[in-house]
Write a protein that binds this DNA or RNA. Structure first.
Length: 268
DNA sequence: ATGGCAGGAAAATCCTGA
C-alpha cells in the first residue's frame, strides 16, 4: 500500500497487549497508521510481541512493566529512534509511563498519565505531581522548530463536553478542577488539542467503560489526546476515533484516536 | 450511594483501572 499523502499519528490504550494483540494487528492492517503510541501494555519487556508487530510492518520501541502500565511507540516501515525513556523529574518513579522517539520526522512523546483514583489520596497526589513533571518537560519541547506530538492516555476529561454525564463523574480523579486546570495550562504553553481542533465542537469520545453497554450507547469520555506543537499543528488536516475497534468482542475500553498532519519535509 | 465489567498474577481472591 502506498503511503498516504498525510502522516497519520495514532494513540491506543490496548488494556493488555497480550489479550489485545489480535485487535491491534487487525487495526494496523486496516487503518495503516504511520505512527502509533500504545499504553497499558501490562507486560514486561520480554513479553512484548515484537515479532508479530514487525511482521505487520512496524518497527517498535517499548518500556514494559509486569501487570500494569507499559508504553510503546510504533513506526510504519521504520524503527523509532529513541530519545528518552521515562519522564524526567523523579528518579524514584519506576512506573513505565513515558517514552520518546523520533519517527517519520516527528518527535513523539508517548505517555500514560496516572489515573489518580481514588481522590483525594496518594494516587491523586502522584497524578498531580506527574502532570507537573510533564508540564516542565513539555515546555522544553513546545518551541522546537520541528513537529512534536505529545500523545497518549491523559486520563483527563478536559471539559463538560468531553463526558456523557458530567454529574456522574464529578468526584472522579479524571474530572477534578485542578486536573482540568493543569491540562488547560499545558495547552496554554502553545500546544494544540489535535482531535478537538480538527474534529470541531461536536461530541466525540475515545473511551467507554465496560458497564451497561456504554460503548453501544456511545456514553463515553474523551481522555486520549494528541497535543501538537506549532510546527505540527500548522499542518493539521483532520482527526478521528476508530470506534469500530471498541465495538468488537473482547475489546479494550479505549479506541484508537488519531490525527493527520502534513508530512515533514525531511523524514527519518 | 453502590456496583456494575475487565485484565493480570496468583491461585479460586486480590489489586488496579476509569
Amino acid at each position: 500500500m502506498p503511503a498516504r499523502a498525510k502522516l497519520r499519528i495514532a494513540t491506543f490504550n490496548v488494556n493488555g497487549i497480550g489479550t489485545r494483540l489480535g485487535h491491534l494487528l487487525a487495526w494496523l492492517e486496516r487503518e495503516q497508521p504511520d505512527i502509533v503510541a500504545l499504553q497499558e501494555l501490562k507486560a514486561d519487556d520480554a513479553a512484548f510481541p515484537a515479532a508479530d508487530i514487525e511482521a505487520a510492518g512496524y518497527g517498535a520501541s517499548w518500556i514494559g512493566q509486569r501487570s500494569w502500565n507499559g508504553v510503546a511507540i510504533l513506526g510504519r516501515g521504520v524503527e523509532p529512534v529513541e530519545s528518552r525513556r521515562g519522564l524526567p523529574g523523579d528518579p524514584g518513579d519506576t512506573q513505565s509511563r513515558y517514552l520518546e522517539a523520533a519517527v517519520h520526522g516527528v518527535l513523539v512523546g508517548a505517555l500514560y498519565l496516572p489515573n489518580g483514583n481514588p481522590q483525594p489520596g496518594p494516587k491523586f497526589d502522584y497524578k498531580l505531581a506527574w502532570m507537573a513533571r510533564l508540564a516542565r518537560h513539555a515546555a522544553s519541547l513546545v518551541d522546537l522548530p520541528h513537529p512534536v506530538a505529545l500523545i497518549g492516555d491523559y486520563n483527563v476529561i478536559p471539559t463538560d463536553a468531553d463526558v456523557y454525564d458530567p454529574k456522574a463523574w464529578r468526584k472522579d480523579a479524571l474530572f477534578q478542577p485542578e486536573v482540568r486546570e493543569a491540562f488547560a495550562r499545558l495547552l496554554e504553553q502553545g500546544w494544540t488539542d489535535g482531535l478537538r481542533e480538527a474534529h470541531g465542537p461536536s461530541t466525540i469520545y475515545t473511551f467507554w467503560d465496560y458497564f451497561r453497554q456504554h460503548a453501544e450507547r456511545d456514553r463515553g469520555l474523551r481522555i486520549d489526546h494528541l497535543l501538537l506543537n506549532r510546527a505540527a499543528a500548522k499542518g493539521l488536516h483532520r482527526a478521528g476515533v476508530d470506534r469500530w475497534v471498541r465495538l468488537q468482542q473482547k475489546a479494550s475500553d479505549h479506541a484508537p484516536t488519531w490525527v493527520e498532519i502534513a508530512r515533514p519535509r525531511s523524514p527519518r
